[in-house]
Design a protein around this nucleic acid. Sequence first.
RNA 1: GCCCUCGUAGCUCAGCGGAUAGAGCGAGUGACUUCUAAUCACUUGGUCGCAGGUUCGAGUCCUGCCGGGGGCACCA
Length: 552
Amino acid sequence: MTPAVLADLVRSTALAVLADRGLDTSVVPESVTVQRPRNPEHGDYATNLALQSAKKLGVPPRDLATWLAEALVATDAISSADIAGPGFVNLRLAADAQAGIVRETLAAGERWGTGDAMAGLKVNLEFVSANPTGPIHIGGTRWAAAGDALGRVFTAQGAEVTREYYINDAGVQIDRFAESLIAATKGEAPPEDGYKGAYVSDIGAEVLRRNPSALSLPTEERHQLFRTVGVELMLGEIKSSLHAFGTDFDVFFSELTLHNSGTVEATVARLKDSGQLYENEGAWWLRSTEYGDDKDRVVIKADGRPAYIAADIAYFADKRKRGAQLCLYLLGADHHGYIGRLKAAAAALGDDPGAVEVLIGQMVNLLSDGKPLRMSKRAGTVLTMEDLVEAIGVDAARYALTRSSTDSTLDVDLDLWSRRSNDNPVYYVQYAHARLSSILRGAGDLGIDITGSEVDLALLTHDREGDLIRTIGEFPRVVRSAAELREPHRVAHYLESLASAYHKFYDACRVLPQGDEETSPLNVARLQLCAASRQVLANGLRLLGVGAPERM
RNA sequence: GCCCUCGUAGCUCAGCGGAUAGAGCGAGUGACUUCUAAUCACUUGGUCGCAGGUUCGAGUCCUGCCGGGGGCACCA
């Protein structure tokens, strides 16, 4: 019996109890809380329903709890129901009912943990979107890991996710990038505010290799060539880094196409027509304060060129046109000022600002020897995604970056994470998977068939077995809350608790028959528990994009 | 000044309004002739930044203050 089914049982039992006594059944919430108490003496599960409802009913909470407990213990699935504290009802499941979780997990397989909380919802998930003027640095890497995991979690809840990367290939940064490439190719120093670093020379050289006469072109044509080809090459490297990192996008959307196709212009015209823009000091302003922004924003600059936000608005409109019901933006903390204007932009278009959701992720500090590494993208002293992967590996990097809430600034100590030891929690989780794989291989070698449906899972009565089973049962609601709260780090945290429950079980409970022993029903039941545990570890690690090794 | 975010063990971080606040690392002691010791058990370690408020119940929600980080462009 999963917690969700148990919650339904508690709810229906409570409704019946109240109805019997002629009390108001409407005080029972739609969704009843059933949680796993921290203290094992408080049972397998506990519900606070009596505490929540007592006041509204005018009944002492302990009386209500007593009635509920009496009715619950009369059901087959529940072996005991005790009243504790101010009015908790502490429940223990019958072994057979509890073991049903194992059966359900094995039956669901890869689908265990999926749900329909976001069924059919079309989500546009935009993340990373780093300028194609250099490699992805550590901040973008955090989003690559967390955003990708979030996309996987959404998909597990039935959402239709489009992973999107917005390419800022218009604007002055790109011009500076092109000029930097040209300077590097000519062996000159980069222009002021230009880009430095070996990659600039490399890309410049590659542009020249493809177009040997590039440097002798007229200035404007030369600029265009380096700009176009340079961005293409840089983007190619970015895509390749992301792919190696296990993060693939469905759409790479070019800002330039919005300008070139006239979409930006058309969107601005639409805003002007609907009176959302006004002219002041030669520029056109969006009345974004009317929709909650801090200040009005310039959309068309006094020089007649569109400001960055103009393309943003057009881009949002394009996403909606393509069917996105929810447009999620994953931005760094240095962009938090965008929330107001993006929502205002949606409202100004006559759209629902609720379709815009911005997640702000805090910065990553890199430490070496406990000392912070200062980085400057323009100076070329950057720790890139590829550097990080080279230093600690994809699995460790993804895990390190998805393990913590994106609300927290994160310290990544390269020395610590580069130690390939159990300092790294990812090994703890992966090791559990490898151990389980080894046991299941062993069962295969012994010719034990663990697939039988007649296996008596009610034999799993050891404390460690019960704890492991209940932990497995938590997985679906962990995934669900990770999706609803947009907090994929909950999956990582859960996996560590699952690995811990498994390692403790392994320590206390022999799984395979020893020596010449006959295979007992308990061996088979435990093997099913192992198979279920391994399934959940694999499913969870996949949500994080981290490998589940069979051997370590 | 205004906005966002964080403040929990020596360090890095979890913590869905619930009961005696957790994990890893660090420090210490044990456990492999037996399914993977990258593991397990035990010990050490806390005014959950401070002060109010809401609640049967607050690390969690609200307000104020203190401290760290990040923003507050006709840059992108």
